[in-house]
């Protein structure tokens, strides 16, 4: 196989895996939540309801692709595109297994942070272009939340970078052969998980789209495939956060030899995804100001302390 072919296979394979996996997640989430909540969840279409995704897709595709008259049409259309694009693009730097992964940037981690930071534009553009008050409040909440949580998301990863001595994610995985970073960097992992959930605005950090307050928040005016792009974007983001935690803290593809490395990567990611679904099923939603003060007064100092202590221990 020529390198070009291998690259093409990687690109197409990962793209399909990510988008299909995210779509599949909508079913997994509903099914798993159903089981945890003493009910069935979608189990009618296809074996175990797995074809529910197809049914949902058909439904969303044949819906009228409505752009409100009062909206800023261009921005309204590009907002969901950004939402989808940035998270999928961030997957380019995730090393899934030896030989599986699109690109090994020597600033991979920074690329990931840059891409997730761009995600806030999707929400803000969507909210602003909708010209809807619920969307506006959702957009303001999202902007404030994402910008604040970005700060310590970055900081929480610096401990790992120091330990690995590299921004290259493949190097980070390889340097965990002697032990996963979750142990020395437990606080960092915890903070990154929190920030990751906040970035993908899922419960308990789903304030931008808090259904009970803001109907649907920033995507109130969206329907059909544009809504689906926001929706799938959210699930890709869940996958991305889980994959990043796997890579940074759980030793990526490293695992016992009886199974291929990719299996270990996927297994770890899946467990993290399920954990995030479990959080959604159990926690209520804090208030906006409580969320912000939790971020700035609790998480940020914690991230800084983690960074300082790690640095001190390394330089000792």
């Amino acid at each position: 196989m020529t390198p070009v072919m291998a690259n093409l296979l990687n690109i197409v394979g990962i793209l399909v895996f990510v988008v299909f996996g995210a779509a599949m997640l909508t079913w997994v989430e509903r099914r798993v939540l159903g089981i945890w909540q003493d009910r069935h969840g979608p189990n009618r279409v296809g074996p175990f309801g797995t074809l529910q995704i197809v049914a949902d897709m058909i439904k969303l595709l044949v819906k009228e692709d409505w752009v409100p008259d009062f909206s800023d049409k261009f921005i309204f259309v590009i907002a969901p595109t950004i939402a989808m694009f940035v998270v999928v693009a961030a997957f380019a730097v995730i090393p899934m297994a030896p030989g599986v992964g699109i690109v090994d940037l020597n600033v991979g981690l920074l690329f990931f942070l840059a891409m997730t930071s761009l995600g806030v534009y999707a929400v803000m553009f969507g909210a602003y272009a909708s010209d809807n008050k619920y969307a506006l409040i959702g957009g303001i909440r999202a902007a404030a939340q994402m910008v604040s949580y970005e700060v310590f998301m970055g900081l929480s990863l610096m401990g790992v970078v120091m330990l690995a001595g590299s921004f290259d994610l493949r190097q980070v995985v390889l340097s965990q052969q002697d032990g996963w970073y979750i142990f020395p960097q437990f606080i960092g992992a915890f903070i990154f998980m929190m920030a990751g959930i906040a970035e993908s605005h899922r419960t308990p950090f789903d304030l931008p789209e808090a259904e009970h307050e803001l109907t649907a928040g920033f995507h109130t005016e969206y329907s059909g495939m544009k809504f689906a792009m926001f929706f799938i974007g959210e699930y890709v983001s869940v996958l991305l956060t889980s994959a990043m935690i796997t890579v940074l803290f759980l030793g990526g593809w490293l695992g016992p030899d009886f199974a291929p490395p990719l299996f270990w990567f996927l297994l770890k990611t899946l467990i993290l995804v399920l954990f995030m679904i479990l959080i959604r099923g159990s926690l209520p939603r804090p208030r906006y100001d409580q969320l912000m003060s939790f971020g700035w007064k609790c998480m940020l100092p914690l991230a800084l302390a983690n960074l300082v202590v790690t640095a001190a221990l390394i330089l000792r």
Partner: peptide
């Protein structure tokens, strides 16, 4: 009540 505060699951248990 729980659901309005954003807690998703209790209502399902209670509905049983």
């Amino acid at each position: 009540f729980a659901q309005d505060i954003g807690q998703m699951s209790p209502i399902f248990y209670i509905f049983t």
